[in-house]
Design a protein around this nucleic acid. Structure first.
Length: 411
RNA sequence: CGGGGCGUAGCGUAGCCCGGUUAUCGCGCCUGCUUUGGGAGCAGGAGGUCGCAAGUUCGAAUCUUGCCGCCCCGACCA
């Protein structure tokens, strides 16, 4: 990778961490290696989820939910998969605590509650899902089986970074079963396209599509396809993967179907996933030294309105105008927030919403009321302009679209 | 697991080398007044087992030993 394009090579890690925390997306938690996703970060994730979920459903998938725990005997059935994840699994060995007789007020693991078989906290759900698919699939008429799951998984990583690599993370994992290899490969590629489209059209983040090398391949897969995005430190970040699993899992979990000729064969499988890591990618792809820059299509707040006033009387006048705008903007489908919190001054709010990456800010004060205009500032270029109050919503919609396009081109 | 660093108020820190009154400063927090077009000003106030334990000493945040925790770099990983 060309080192010339690395304006943030130094302290990139610190810059990223501070930004995520200051913008209110997430924070470290008291649990080692785990993070707390704060309301603002979660709202962003929900927006991403909603779009992805619709894309999955539009391509014929359904959602389902499978258990958090995987019995060890199931987990070890697909050997390569088990080996690949073995070093980073959380394991449940007991199911009960009791009062510690030697230390008042303390609890200890009850040795009598030792499980006959250990439970693995899923690092991914192939094992539990394929053991279930065995019961769901008998005939070609049951295929294709196109399932997605929104879930949390745990991978006991040595070193963690907010959103990019935490011990527990949120993701979606698609698990599909097909009658032919061709169909499964087509599904694998289709979902890679879905991810690429989401990254480019919604996250405004250009990606490169490719196939992983042998040692980067998902454990248990025949082929791993991925999208990689270029970050501002000049490194590529894996943003999503789609695996062609061949018949490996069908063999391991004995999932066979009868075809039209009544011939018995193992089904062909795929799995694909993206995680909250996408938020990390989003942060790294667009942000600048003043904070986040969010793509309008995913921003939890697309437009923030900040009043500037002296005294209650002027505030009331502004309130009245703004309430009309809010109504107008909401009618145009814009997520708008009117921040009339009196605890913070306008300058503080300007900086705060820039840090949070809100695409458009509207300032309105006595001056503007007189001129029948408002001050509009766009986050990506930091450009300020005056806009007439007349027809504001139409112009704001245009501006949001322009910002979406501009940050894609910049990235 | 290999290498490096750090633990002092909610957060960030000074002091430690060279032991000595009441542990420094900033942010944040609370109260009041004035403010409000780019992270406000003034005044007053609250908040501390200096990571834990033992030792040396008249006296330890500071020196010694042990332990614990965290962070960064490497390897591994979505």
């Amino acid at each position: 990778m060309n080192k010339e394009i690395t304006p943030r090579e130094q302290d990139y890690s610190k810059w990223y961490n501070d930004l995520v925390i200051k913008a209110g997306l997430a924070d470290y938690s008291a649990v080692r290696g785990c993070m707390v996703i704060k309301p603002y970060g979660y709202a962003l994730w929900e927006n991403m989820q909603a779009v992805l979920d619709k894309m999955f459903k539009d391509t014929g998938h359904q959602n389902a939910y499978f258990p958090l725990f995987v019995p060890k005997s199931l987990f070890e059935k697909e050997e390569q998969n088990a080996e690949g994840f073995a070093k980073e699994c959380a394991v449940v060995t007991h199911y009960r605590l009791k009062l510690n007789p030697e230390k008042k007020g303390a609890l200890m693991v009850d040795p009598d509650s030792k499980l006959e078989e250990e439970l693995i906290v899923r690092p991914t759900s192939e094992a539990i899902i394929w053991s279930t698919y065995k019961n769901w699939i008998q005939s070609y008429r049951d295929l294709p089986l196109l399932i997605n799951q929104w879930a949390n998984v745990v991978r006991w990583e040595m070193r963690t970074r907010l959103f990019l690599r935490t011990a527990e993370f949120l993701w979606q994992e698609g698990h599909t079963a097909h009658a032919t290899a061709e169909e499964a490969v087509a599904e694998t590629k289709q979902m890679l396209e879905v991810y690429a489209e989401f990254a480019e059209q919604w996250m405004a983040m250009p990606v490169v599509k490719g196939v992983k090398s042998l040692n980067e391949r998902f454990a248990g897969a025949i082929d791993t396809y991925c999208i990689e995005a270029l970050m501002q430190d000049g490194k590529a970040l894996q943003a999503g993967t789609s695996h062609f699993l061949g018949q490996n899992f069908a063999r391991a979990f004995d999932v066979k179907f009868s075809d039209k000729q009544n011939k018995l064969d193992y089904v062909w499988a795929t799995s694909w996933g993206v995680s909250t890591r996408l938020i990390g990618a989003l942060v790294m792809a667009h942000s600048d030294d003043d904070g986040l820059v969010l793509p309008p299509k995913l921003a939890p707040i697309q437009v923030v309105i900040v009043p500037i006033y002296k005294g209650d009387e002027q505030k009331k006048l502004i309130d009245k105008k703004v309430h009309a705008f809010v109504k107008e903007l909401k009618a145009a489908g814009i997520k708008v927030k009117y921040d009339d919190n009196d605890n913070n001054r306008p300058g503080w709010k300007f900086a705060e919403y820039e840090m949070k990456g809100v695409p458009v800010r509207i300032g309105i004060g006595g001056r503007d009321i007189e001129n029948n205009a408002v001050e509009v500032a766009r986050r990506d270029t930091r450009e300020k302009m005056s806009m007439p109050m007349e027809g504001l919503a139409v112009n704001i919609v245009k501006l949001l679209n322009a910002i979406q396009e501009a940050i894609y081109n910049k990235a």
